[in-house]
Nucleic acid binder design. Structure first.
Length: 424
DNA sequence: TCTGGGGTCCTAGGACCC
DNA sequence: TCTGGGGTCCTAGGACCC
């Protein structure tokens, strides 16, 4: 990849002793500039150039190559700003299916090492290797093994943090990027954490950082010395307890495999603001199709449907409704979504984002009673069985989309409505 | 500078039941 | 006539993460 000159260290610990990784059974594997790296693997002529993957006119940067980062370009930066910062920037549209496929290949390598893999997103995962040490060697050796296999088989680089706890492993991987490895020995956790700014802690975003700075808390050491009641008043109970524990190096969370998702949603920011209710409704239908298909793909049903509307001034409203029965049909999701939208009773709105969400999910096989069509108002206890029409229609559209891609039907619904039939 | 899309979790208030 | 406390569910909004 010609990147070796940038790599500060391929393997390092805070400690030179051979058993520095004793007890460090958590690995955090984090792919380097993942979306961009997948694009460069597909088109090697992009290597060494400033490249970002990101959305459309009103999009933000989803991933930036290290060359692009030299210009100050970062993830989540508005695309318009990124383009201004680097005239030669290569901007690629996101190709989620490719990233998902690459992610699946990487996760399968990780699962070869241990079944205790917890993916956090497409490009990172925790591993618990406590039970793997006898087979593959010390945690540091396992980390080297993982990095080598991903490099050889997937031609992608990653960074690995090795520690006793999840959050320290995650901080470690962040501090050896790109293409590095860092072990934090158990006895030296506090020494590693103390000088770090509080903003690196999981759960400290812009707002919480502001509250902490107001108290004069800037480093993890400052945080560790702050009495819990003081913290509680500043940031609320749950966050205070969580942060105080982390600052002391305590994190009891174990690696969780196979968690079922709690919600499935889709939203879309339009290139120009929507002002016409019919346009909003077409988008609600498209998003309902998308969400419904993903709910059905997983064999789930939902009891709660919600919408999200973001206005031109960036203010946002959400509405959810819990239904008397379980749904997975596009028609039922859309009917609920459009009623929630109508209930907002907006006067001449300017809308930039529309979202649809299903939550309260459960296994469809365990929930025989499903609502469909416009029966979402039926009272509990008189829930009708599936109509014959909806499942057949959904199966047909799901099949077309599976074969020809999501755009085959989804975008069609955003086109102007078809002309009415010539005769009644 | 002008702010994506996918999620998780927390808080707070109100309804409702016992 | 006025007033309990606990538990659960629902809803809206917001912080946060990648």
């Amino acid at each position: 990849m010609g990147r070796s000159a940038d790599v500060p260290r391929d393997s390092a610990t805070l400690d030179d002793s051979p058993d520095a990784d004793a007890g460090c059974h958590i690995l955090h594997v984090d792919m380097d500039a993942f979306f961009v790296s997948v694009e460069i693997r597909r088109d090697p002529t992009l290597a060494g150039r400033p490249v970002v993957v990101g959305g459309n006119v009103r999009g933000v940067v989803a991933a930036a190559s290290y060359e692009a980062r030299r210009y100050g370009i970062r993830s989540a930066m508005p695309m318009s700003q990124a383009v201004r910062m680097c005239r030669d920037l290569v901007v690629l549209p996101p190709d989620r299916p490719s990233y998902a496929a690459a992610s699946g290949a990487v996760m399968s390598i990780l699962r070869d090492v241990t079944p205790l893999v917890e993916p956090l997103s497409l490009d990172e995962a925790f591993l618990d290797v406590a039970g793997t040490v006898r087979r593959l060697g010390s945690p540091a050796a396992i980390a080297r093994h993982v990095r080598a296999r991903i490099a050889e088989e997937q031609h992608l680089t990653c960074s690995v943090g090795v520690a006793r706890t999840k959050f320290v492993a995650k901080l470690a991987s962040a501090r050896c990027k790109p293409n590095g490895m860092l072990v934090i020995p158990v006895a030296r956790v506090r020494e590693f954490l103390d000088p770090l700014p509080v903003t690196v802690l999981w759960g400290v975003g812009a707002r919480t950082a502001e509250q902490l700075h107001r108290l004069g808390i800037r480093t993890v050491a400052d945080l560790a010395e702050t009495p819990l009641p003081t913290l509680h008043r500043a940031v609320g109970g749950a966050v205070a307890t969580h942060l105080s524990a982390l600052a002391h190096g305590i994190d009891e969370r174990s690696v969780q495999t196979g968690e079922q998702e709690k919600s499935i949603s889709a939203d879309h920011t339009t290139d120009t603001d929507l002002t016409d209710a019919a346009d909003v409704d077409r988008l609600l239908l498209q998003l309902s199709e998308e969400v419904g298909r993903r709910v059905r793909d997983r064999g789930l049903v939902a009891r709660t449907v919600g919408i999200k509307i973001r206005f031109a001034d960036f203010s946002m409203v959400t509405r959810v409704r819990s239904l008397p029965g379980w749904v997975d049909a596009t028609s039922a999701i859309h009917a609920t979504a459009r009623e929630l939208y109508a209930g907002l009773d907006l006067d001449r709105p300017r809308i930039r984002l529309v979202g649809v969400k299903c939550e309260n999910l459960r296994d469809g096989a365990a929930a025989p009673h499903q609502l469909s069509l416009d029966l979402t108002h039926a009272t509990a206890g008189s829930v009708p069985a599936d109509s014959d029409v909806d499942p057949a229609l959904d199966r047909a559209t799901d099949a077309v989309r599976a074969r020809f891609g999501a755009a085959a039907l989804g975008l069609g619904s955003l086109l102007p409505p078809a002309a009415p039939p010539p005769r009644p």
